[in-house]
Design a protein around this nucleic acid. Structure first.
Length: 443
RNA sequence: GACCCCAUCGUCUAGCCUGGUCAGGACACAAGCUUUUCAAGCUUGCAGCGCGGGUUCAAAUCCCGCUGGGGUCACCA
């Protein structure tokens, strides 16, 4: 039976890298009909915050990951202490200034990584140090492993040790974690040996890096899953993009449903190479999901998003919003971008882009043609695509100007922008009253 | 610095295990079609096996070295 775990520390929000680690664990469990454990590593009483823990659970759920078991290390301190004391009794560990340290043997530690193959650490260069930290034996700087802290002087257990005890007791079959833990692995294997446990299988995922190199971090921009939620990314899209970082379903497929991905997922196919996180490509993936999403579901998602962000809806109904969304479905990468581009729908005091008023609304024919158009539109009994276009064409021929001459100024007057969906669609969605009112402001 | 990991277009990748297809796809970029603008869509283009040695009839693929990148070296997790 496959059993995996994701073990975040609630000392910060769930970030992109952690989310991908969680995702691969979760996918492996679900694909293999195994068990997915969520373990909160809150041993650092000072830095751990309830707020972070809640955010992590919330982000996990938002991304669509559920868990079969949930543990908190802060509730298991007795277990770690008992195990540590057992090692002292057996002479495998010793007390030092109130802490318990493990005697690390000088030997070679080998393990087989499911992604990378055999990895070997040689601890024979082990260095013993005196109280001042000076090397007594071995060459300074050459120590691979030193005696590891099991229990700290303050009585709390150390990370590596909890991790080993828990993974063993919880019978985790496969530890899937970031590559940054490779060098933790030999000392943990030594702990398994000391405790008399059989080590699990290990799979070390490649790291996710920022555009300028180095591990992805805040300086590269948004890293918290919740940031992406707030920017209006769809969870399915984020998950799809994340799984593409270091894994490929093979062939030419990139947009893939979870159901399909689960069928194709295997640890063997995970890459060894670190991948650079590309916001641009994530945006494209998100746009694909938005474009392909059912209009009603998409409208609901956006409505939900508005509620969460406490956006001013300006009395726009769901049906009206749906019509707006239709126009922008293929024109947005994120929901935030949608509200940016369609702001003129939600408020009358929308901003004009720089210089567009001077460029388009000062043209010689604008006063007269706007006046004429406003009158014609106001007189329409049915205000739809066809009737508004007819009225528009009428004005164009009466004024002896081109369609283009009038389209652009009108769009600017209505939306404040030179770009956007078709003009007549825009007018219809905006409604007769507002369309006419906005034209009137300019003559 | 020591130890460990990694190396295909600018980026994500397929191909590597089981040597022999013009090294395939996607993002981005450029051009064109479409068009009232912008997107979307379609077509086309640009661009890559880090370097040097081997092994072999044949190397992106196997081996070694170099270089480069990354990670770890806490009584943080």
């Amino acid at each position: 039976m496959i059993k995996v775990r994701f073990a975040p520390s609630p000392t910060g929000y769930l970030h992109i890298g952690g989310a991908r680690t969680a995702l691969f664990n979760w996918m492996y469990a679900r694909a293999q009909k195994g068990i997915f454990v969520l373990r909160i590593e809150d041993t650092d009483q000072i830095r751990s915050k309830k707020e972070y823990e809640e955010e992590i659970l919330k982000s996990m759920k938002w991304l669509g990951m559920d868990w079969d078991e949930l543990y908190y290390q802060s509730q298991r301190f007795d277990i770690y202490r008992e195990k540590a004391e057992q090692l002292v009794k057996e002479g495998k560990a010793y007390l030092d200034n109130g802490a318990i340290l493990l005697k690390t043997p000088k030997r070679e530690v080998k393990f087989t990584d499911l992604i990378r193959g055999d990895i070997c650490f040689d601890t024979t260069n082990f260095v013993t140090r005196d109280a001042d930290g000076n090397a007594i034996t071995g060459e300074d700087g050459a120590d691979v492993l030193k005696d590891e802290v099991l229990m700290k002087a303050d009585g709390s257990p150390a990370y590596s040790f909890c991790c080993v005890v828990d993974d063993a007791l919880m019978e985790i079959s496969t530890v899937i974690r970031g590559e940054d833990h490779i060098s933790n692995t030999p000392k943990q294997i030594i702990m398994y040996d000391a405790l008399g446990f059989k080590p699990p299988k290990f799979a070390h995922l490649p790291l996710i890096m920022g555009e300028e190199g180095g591990r992805l971090s805040k300086r590269h921009g948004a890293v918290a899953v919740s940031d992406y939620r707030r920017q209006g990314f769809l969870p399915d899209a984020l998950v799809n993009y994340l799984m593409l970082l270091g894994w490929s379903p093979g062939g030419d497929q990139e947009i893939i449903s979870m159901k399909n991905a689960l069928q194709k997922f295997s640890i063997k196919k995970i890459n060894k190479t670190a991948a650079v996180f590309s916001l641009e490509k994530l945006g494209w993936v998100n746009a694909q999901y938005i474009k392909n999403k059912d209009i009603n579901e998409l409208t609901d998602s956006i409505l939900n998003f508005m509620k969460e962000k406490e956006f001013e809806t300006a009395g726009v109904t769901k049906e009206q919003l749906k019509e707006v969304v239709k126009l922008y479905k293929s024109r947005m990468h994120t929901f935030v971008e949608f509200f940016d581009r369609a702001d003129f729908i939600f408020k009358d005091d929308f901003k004009f882009d720089d210089g567009v008023q001077e460029q388009y609304l000062k043209q010689y024919h604008v006063r007269e043609s706007f006046d004429l158009l406003a009158q014609k539109l106001a007189n329409l009994t049915t205000f739809d695509l066809k009737s508004s276009e007819e009225a528009f064409k009428d004005v164009v021929s009466k004024m002896n100007i081109t369609t283009s001459d009038l389209v652009h100024p009108v769009r600017v007057a209505l939306t404040g922008k030179t770009v956007g969906p078709g003009l007549f669609e825009t007018m219809v969605v905006l409604g007769k009253e507002k369309t006419v009112a906005r034209l009137k402001k300019h003559f």
